[in-house]
Each structure stands twice: as C-alpha cells, then as structure tokens.
Design a protein around this nucleic acid. Structure first.
Lengths: 242, 242
DNA sequence: CGTTTATTTGAAAACGCTCAAGCTCTGTGG
DNA sequence: CCACAGAGCTTGAGCGTTTTCAAATAAACG
C-alpha cells in the first residue's frame, strides 16, 4: 500500500503521468513503499525481475560483476525508475542494486506493469519513451567508455554535475569517491590521479567539493560532446516541429 | 514501395509480426528498399532520425566518434532493425551507420513508426520488447567493456561466434579484423596480440578462420557469464512459468 | 580519543596505444 | 600469367595509461 503523499509524487513521474487512472490504481494498490537502510542490497543480478523499482528518496547504486571485479553502472536519485527493461522482458536482472544512503523505494509487482502495458496505451507509450531514453543514456555511457580516457570522463562528469547543481562552479560530489570511480570506469587510485591531472585544467579540489575556477580551461580539456554528455531529456510535450 | 517477397520477410520480423495489417500496410506503402554499395554511409550521428532502418541483406556497422577516435558499437545483419530509439524519441542519431558490404536496407519514415505506436497496441508492445532487448544488449556490452580485458572480450566473442555458426569449433570471422577490433573496443594491433594471447588457450588462427581446438581451455580463459555474453533472446511466445 | 574506513601517494607491473616497418593477401593492369 | 600497387594484418619498440599492491594520510564514527 502506498501513502497519498507518495502517490501524488509518483504520479508526477513521466512514466506514470500519461497512464490511465485504473493503471495507476493497480500500482498503488499492489505496490508498496519500503524504507531501506544504507548499504542494503535490494536485489542481485541474475535474480528474476519481480518488481519495478522507483526511488522516492535516497540514492541507489546499480552495479554488476563478481566479487573480484565490480563496476557501477548507474546512480539513481529521486524520482527515478530502474530496471524497467528486465521487468518488461520478464527476465532476470542484469544489475544488482544497493542503497547508498537510507532510501525509500516503491516496489511495483512486475506482472502489474506488464499487464498495464497491454491494457493501457497511454502507459505503453510512456514506457516506450522511458525505455528509449534509458537506452540512449547507456549508449552514451558506452561511447564515453570506448572513446575517452579516465581523466576526460571525469572532466565531463564534473561539467555535467555543475550544470545539475546550478552551474555555480561549486560542485558537491554527493557520493563516495570510490563509487564515482567505479561509475566512471576506473579504480579509486586512478580517480585520485585523474583529479590531480585536472588541477592544471582549471579545478580545485577540497575533499568532496570541487570548484571549477577556469571553466574554459576545463571545457577545453573535456571537449564535451552533446552526443555523449548531454542528459537524455524528456521528450517535449507536443510533437516538436523540426 | 516495397516488393512482396521482401514484405513477407519483414513481416516475419518480431517487431512487425504482432502489429495490425493496417500498420504493416502503412509501412510497406511509405517505406522503400534501397540497395547500397559497400562502404556507403547511411547516416551520421547528430542527424535527425528520419527513418527506421531494417537490414534485409548485407551487413551494417553502427559506429560513433570523431575522425580522431572512432568506435564500432554494433554490427547488424539480416533481418535486423536499428536506431529504433532515436526514431521513437524523435531525436538525432547517436550513431552513424555504414554498409560493410553491398546491402539492402528497408527505410520506414519515422513519423509512420511513431504514428503506428500510438494507434496499434500490438505494434507498441512489439516495440517495447525490441527496445528492452536492445537496451539489455547494450548494458551487457558496457559491462564487458568495464569488467574485462581485451583478450577476454575476444575469447568470449569467439565462443559466441562459434555458437552462432553451428558450434563446430570452426569460426569464420565475417568482418574485417579492424572492425572486429573496434567492436571489441581495441586497436587492430591489439586485437592481433589478443589472438596471440589466446593461442595457448586452445585456438588456432588462419587468416579469417579461427579454430577452437580445446574448447575447455578457451572457456576457462574466457570465463563466460550469461549476464554479459548470452545474446538477448526473443521473449517466449506465452508467458513463461517460472 | 581510538578504531575503522576512505582517500591519497608511491612504486612496479600489466595493459593498451602509437608509430614504424615488414608481411600477406587481393585485385588490377601489363 | 606475372608483376605490382594497395589495403589489411602482423610484429616490434617505446611510451603513456591504468591497475595492483603497499603504505601513509585523512576523515568518519562510535
């Protein structure tokens, strides 16, 4: 059962905004919100995808790999959905998930999602858009991994983080550096060195705070590319005229 | 205009199999098949996605990057769809496409696809499945890039190629090695060395033919993981009982 | 405080890339 | 049919990047 204040919030989410009331009700009736402590593993890769997850509060890390080698694939913050693809395909998870801080997670039974997709065209459309967006984000990640060095990925991550935090040039790394390193596809040691590499290119580091003191220098180093770095945005409400 | 023999073939494609006849007609009436010579660039990243592409014959390479650094993201063979996500989002392509050999490409106007998605629930469902599958394939690629060395990626590629070609242990690399190198995220020189690395692990190389002489040795080296290496299969016709 | 955990730094090794040269294969023109 | 040019592939050497291992430092937590 999901509480009213949460329901409104979730309904705002693009994925749920265009579906029918019936669809949404089937979710609120069977879905439930659960609060998890920090460091809790929500599920592991290779388990059957039984629930669609929505982050209402906190932070969730999606990761994969064995104990030997592990990598972070994504960081999900409110309000964000994750592992939609596995749920739709009725497949196992490709990624594991753990909370990085105490988090409120809405869990919707996978069969309800699949059923809604078949009965509610508006919801089906929203799913398509959400899927396509996530897919494109992942392709961008893959391009970044294959085309750039670690320091370049970090530089572009910083530029993006700055934008997301208001473009003040004052960035707060909101996750542990080890996690950031894993997200960027490198070791913690290497991230540390990447930061050092960037120092001559217009940044100053103080613990978990980074200041971009010469934006042009950082941009010159990062060479940001919209086709790699721009976040996938929600499609415009109407059909855009090109 | 699309010819009848092609139409039947395309209709077989899972993406088009469950849509209505009306939907399919709108595609065959406005779509067209074109034969391209080898090496032809079909479109470039950053161009607006005007057509959904279907490979009916030949081979298409999806790649990205600037002139300096370029990488192959996928190889598409008949019968395969590509750049579905860009079409649905009405966005620019994230990848460029070129033919690796003379190829027959079916091109369906993007607006027809988007329209069909809104009017034909069966087609919408097929799109969701296709998208989810491609998405998961890309995540697997990303995991492979982040978790494995070049030689390991090659070893697993060989195991997969062998399966696809009948499991005889005789593999025909059907693309140029330079392209394979790019697909696997390394330089041609490095691929050459990766092959040498694998020689003590049960393979013999002769030009574009590779023989797996000691499968167990190769498997031991590759340490294949279903969550990285298994191809995403079409979802079962009925709902699978778990 | 003292203990644990995260981060940084250093040194060595593994990995991957670049450059350059030699080799192989293929297709073409003589 | 042969010679040759061009493209692709391989090999070697050197270099830069990244990882690993180890240790020191800093920060977080009870």
């Amino acid at each position: 059962m999901i509480r009213p204040e949460n329901a409104a919030e979730v309904r705002q989410l693009e994925l749920f905004a265009t579906g029918s009331e019936t669809t949404f009700l089937s979710f609120t009736e069977t879905g439930f919100v659960q609060r998890f402590p920090r460091g809790m593993v929500l599920f592991r890769e290779n388990e059957p995808a039984d629930f669609l997850h929505v982050v209402l509060g906190g932070t969730v890390e999606l990761f994969a790999g064995s104990d030997k080698r592990e990598t972070t694939l994504d960081i999900v913050r409110p309000v964000g959905v994750f592992i939609l693809a596995a749920v739709l395909n009725d497949e196992v998870y490709l990624q594991s998930a753990r909370t990085l801080e105490p988090s409120d997670i809405l869990m919707i039974p996978a069969e309800k999602v699949r059923a809604a997709m078949d009965t509610d065209p508006g919801f089906a459309r929203a799913i398509v858009m959400e899927l396509a967006r996530s897919y494109r984000r992942t392709i961008k990640d893959l391009k970044g991994m294959k085309l750039r060095t670690g320091a370049e990925r970090l530089a572009n991550w910083l530029l993006r983080a700055d934008k997301e935090q208001g473009g003040t040039g004052e960035i707060d790394i909101r996750i542990e550096k080890r996690t950031l390193a894993s997200r960027l596809g490198m070791t913690p040691e290497n991230l540390s060195r990447a930061f050092s590499t960037l120092r001559p290119h217009g940044i100053e580091i103080d613990g978990s705070r980074v200041e971009i003191v010469r934006p042009d220098a950082l941009i010159a180093f990062a060479a940001p590319d919209p086709l790699v770095d721009d976040p996938e945005v929600s499609p415009p409400a109407g059909r855009p005229g090109r």
